[in-house]
Amino acid sequence: MTKKRILFVVNPISGGKKKTAFNKQVLEVLDLSRFEPTFKITNHVNHAYELAKEAIQEKYDAVVAVGGDGTINEIGSALVGSGIPLGVVPEGSGNGLALYLGIPMNESAALRRINRFDSVAIDCAKAEERFFFNIAGIGFDASVSDKFANETFRGPIGYLRTVVNLLSKYKPKKYTLHIDGKKYEREAFMISVANSPQYGNNAYIAPNASINDGVLDVCVVHKFPLYTLPLMIFHLFNKTADQSEYVEIIPGKQICIEQEGQAPIHLDGEPMDLGKEINIEVLPKALNIIC
C-alpha cells in the first residue's frame, strides 16, 4: 500500500509555545505504516501559504497547520479548491476554528485525529481577494489584532492585556452595510463577519453560525456602556451574545462594508488594510478539513 504523504507546516512562534519536540512526537503518534511525514518551518509572513502551494504541485495528500488561526488561514487559502485536505494541530492563542470543529487542543490527541484521516467540507469566505475561514472583523477587534501583531508578549494573556489597554480609548465608528441587497446604516463598536461561531478560547460572538450552511453571520456590536462589560463578557462565554440588546446579527451571502475613515480589518485574527469598502462573499464547501 502506498503511504499518504503529509506535509506538516510548523509556525515556531504561534501561541508563544516552543515546538522543538514536535517532530519527535509526530514520529511517535502518527501511523507510519500509512503516512509519510515531512516537516517544514515557517520563517516569514505568508511562508505557510507558499509552502502549501508547493505541496499542491508536489502532490502531497494533506497539509497540516501546526499553529494558530493565522497559520490555518495561510494554508487554507492555498488549498481552497485543490481537493487536498487541511489538517490542524492547534498551537495558537485562540484556536477558534479548531475548537469549533472539536479538534483536540492536546498535540497527541490532534495527531491521532489525523491518523483517522476523516475530513469534512467547510464553507470559506472571501474578503476582496483574501480568504478567511473563521471570523473577519472591523472596528475594535481589528484594532486589537493590529496592535497585538506588534506585541512581543504572545499567548492569551498577551491578547487580554492588549484588549484592556485599548478598551477605554476606543470610539465607535459609523458604517454602511449592504447585505444581500439590503442597506443598513449603523454606528458600531465593532462588526464581525462569522463563518464559525467563536473567536477562540470559547468566546462565541455568533452562537448559531455554521461552517457548512452557505451563509455568513454579520454581528454588529453597538456602542455599550462600560459598566455592562461584565455582562457582555458573560454573553460571549455563555453562547448567548445574540440575546444581548447591544448585539445585532444579520445573516447574508453577499456583504459590503463601507467605513468612513481608513482602519484595518482582521481576517482570522490577522490585521490588514483592504480599503474603505470591503466586499465579502461566502464560498460553500470550498475546503476540506481533517477532523
Score class of each variant (00 low, 15 high):
4 K>G: 03
6 I>S: 09
9 V>R: 06
24 K>D: 13
26 V>A: 00
27 L>P: 08
29 V>Y: 09
30 L>V: 07
34 R>M: 10
37 P>E: 09
38 T>I: 03
41 I>T: 06
41 I>N: 07
44 H>M: 08
44 H>N: 08
46 N>W: 03
46 N>L: 06
52 A>H: 04
53 K>T: 15
55 A>H: 12
56 I>F: 09
57 Q>Y: 12
62 A>I: 03
62 A>R: 10
63 V>I: 08
66 V>S: 10
67 G>N: 05
68 G>T: 09
71 T>H: 10
71 T>S: 11
71 T>K: 12
73 N>C: 11
74 E>I: 09
75 I>T: 03
77 S>H: 13
78 A>W: 04
80 V>R: 00
85 P>A: 05
87 G>R: 05
97 L>R: 00
99 L>E: 14
100 Y>H: 14
100 Y>T: 14
102 G>T: 11
111 L>P: 05
114 I>G: 06
115 N>G: 14
115 N>R: 05
116 R>S: 13
124 C>F: 01
125 A>K: 04
126 K>L: 15
130 R>C: 02
131 F>W: 06
133 F>I: 07
136 A>T: 02
137 G>V: 02
138 I>Y: 00
142 A>V: 01
143 S>W: 04
150 N>R: 02
154 R>A: 07
156 P>N: 11
158 G>R: 08
162 T>V: 11
164 V>S: 04
174 K>C: 04
175 Y>S: 13
175 Y>R: 10
179 I>M: 02
180 D>F: 00
181 G>V: 10
182 K>H: 06
182 K>W: 00
186 R>L: 11
193 V>W: 02
198 Q>H: 15
199 Y>P: 08
200 G>S: 11
202 N>W: 15
207 P>I: 07
207 P>Y: 05
210 S>D: 06
219 C>M: 14
223 K>M: 01
229 L>D: 07
231 L>W: 02
233 I>F: 15
235 H>G: 03
236 L>G: 10
238 N>E: 11
242 D>Q: 13
242 D>G: 09
245 E>C: 01
254 Q>W: 01
257 I>A: 01
259 Q>P: 02
260 E>V: 13
264 P>A: 06
266 H>R: 00
268 D>I: 03
272 M>A: 07
273 D>S: 12
275 G>F: 08
276 K>W: 07
279 N>L: 04
280 I>G: 01
284 P>E: 14
289 I>H: 01
289 I>Y: 05
290 I>W: 08
